[in-house]
Amino acid sequence: MSTKVVARAPLTFYERTYLPTILSGLKVTAKHFTDTVFRGKTVTMEYPEERWVVPEGYRGAPYLVKDQEGAIKCVSCQLCEFVCPPKAIRITPPGADGAPADRTNAEKMPKEFEINMLRCIFCGMCQEVCPEEAIFLQKDYSLTGESRAEMIFDKAKLLKLGGTHGGVQKWKHKLEGAKAQEVFPV
């Protein structure tokens, strides 16, 4: 542990009058002032009008997606509901005599699917766990509403916001495979 003494040159008379400091301050502030006023170089992003570019892989609000044929991908397995850490997802399954899925070969679809966006922590576990690639974290980052009830997004809203997200269409291929089995004589 040795201390190193840094030699400091004593200030000259000119420096002790504070003039160089004042002049350099004047220069810096004047430059920034003219940059802002005459060249419009501001660091401010005027938010509601200007928005930042959301990068790929951003974890925004989770929404339900449809496949390229407009069918609901969710099969109401409730894995996302189970895995959701803040318990933001609530799924009502169709039940034994509920409506069938709106695409062939899928067993069921949720009767109701709700995400409470006030509880959601945008962790992405629902997306990770989904075996059907039916729920994705998308790019929405500013969710606003006038009441708590409004912030609970239901199935229709989630599907509308989610849009289409094509994929391998597992169930379609299985159907084709099954049909092919029937046609081809073994």
Binding site: H32, F33, T36, V43, T44
Partner: peptide
């Protein structure tokens, strides 16, 4: 306003 301009901001608008 002047403070904002010196700091490359926009100020009350």
């Amino acid at each position: 306003k002047v403070s904002a301009w010196i700091q490359n901001r926009v100020g009350p608008n």
